[in-house]
């Protein structure tokens, strides 16, 4: 049923590809590209003179950034969202990894559960988010749940693929050496599956940020998603921009961290002279 590891979702695939390509160039090229966009943006505002609630100038966004940073409100909201993202990522991938391990071991169990697992992916999380808020309250726990749910499936699929991909020869080797179940797990199965597990985590990290914002949109009184709602309500578009940039920064940092872990776990792959 489940045969392909989840690498990138269709909508975000292009974005990540471009990022990886950029990362291969020297750092200055990235800086030049960012400066170029900022320049176009600043000149557009300067000549077009759109009202500030449509498109604030880079300067206005920067001022908003420093002022929200100074009064502590940005960090307060960002840390709430960050906490939700991390906790959701942690619990979602923990559960998915454990379940995925057993599904990989038993194809009977997978056949039994996979119709539900696949069907659950057909329900847009945005649609059931209000329900989850009704059931679990507008606090942080409902957001963590939403993050965990959105993270769950890609991590699960990658876990199954990862553990199924452990070479049979190496399994035979471990059996012939009378390895215990625990030795097989931590000396063979986990290291063999690790690169694919980290791959799942990398996708889960960006999805978790989306989950947190969706949850905060639907109902909350703190977090970056809440901040965006406030900015929209007050026609404070600069504030919306600040919140969006902070979210991008957060998602990219987590993505980069997971990618680093993935790279480290596959050092041996790039060792060819």
């Amino acid at each position: 049923m489940i045969k392909q590891p989840v690498s990138e979702s269709k909508s975000s695939g292009k974005r990540h590809k471009t990022l990886e390509k950029l990362a291969r160039y020297n750092g200055w090229l990235v800086i030049v590209s960012i400066l170029l966009v900022l320049a176009v943006w600043a000149l557009g505002v300067l000549w077009g003179k759109p009202p500030a609630f449509l498109l604030p100038s880079p300067q206005a966004v920067w001022d908003k950034f420093t002022s929200t940073l100074a009064d502590g409100s940005l960090l307060r909201h960002a840390s709430v969202t960050f906490y939700e993202v991390l906790a959701g990522l942690f619990f979602g991938s923990l559960l998915a990894t454990c379940l995925g391990y057993f599904l990989a071991k038993s194809s009977a169990l997978e056949k039994l559960l996979s119709p539900y697992l696949v069907a659950s992916q057909a329900i847009p999380l945005v649609a059931i988010a209000p329900l989850l808020i009704i059931w679990f309250g507008p606090g942080i726990s409902s957001k963590i749940l939403i993050c965990a749910l959105i993270v769950f499936f890609p991590v699960l699929v990658n876990t199954i693929i990862g553990f199924r991909g452990v070479p049979d020869n190496l399994r035979d080797l471990m059996v012939s050496m009378r390895a215990t179940r625990w030795q097989k797990l931590h000396l063979l199965e986990i290291p063999a599956a690790l690169p694919i597990l980290f791959g799942g985590l990398r996708i889960g990290a960006t999805l978790s940020v989306i989950g947190a914002v969706v949850g905060e949109f639907v109902g909350s009184d703190k977090g970056l998603g809440f901040l965006i709602n406030v900015g929209r309500g007050q026609f404070d578009t600069a504030l919306v921009f600040v919140a969006i940039f902070t979210l991008i920064f957060m998602a990219l940092s987590l993505y980069g961290l997971a990618m680093l872990a993935e790279k480290r776990s596959t050092r041996w792959k790039s060792a060819h002279h």
Binding site: N169, L170, L173, S176, M177, L187, A192, W268
Partner: peptide, 23 residues
Amino acid sequence: ISLVFQQANLMPWRTVLQNILLP
């Protein structure tokens, strides 16, 4: 019992020394 296969069957994530240490 030790088994040697047609393919070396080493663990790619372990160095030569670590592979020999495995048993």
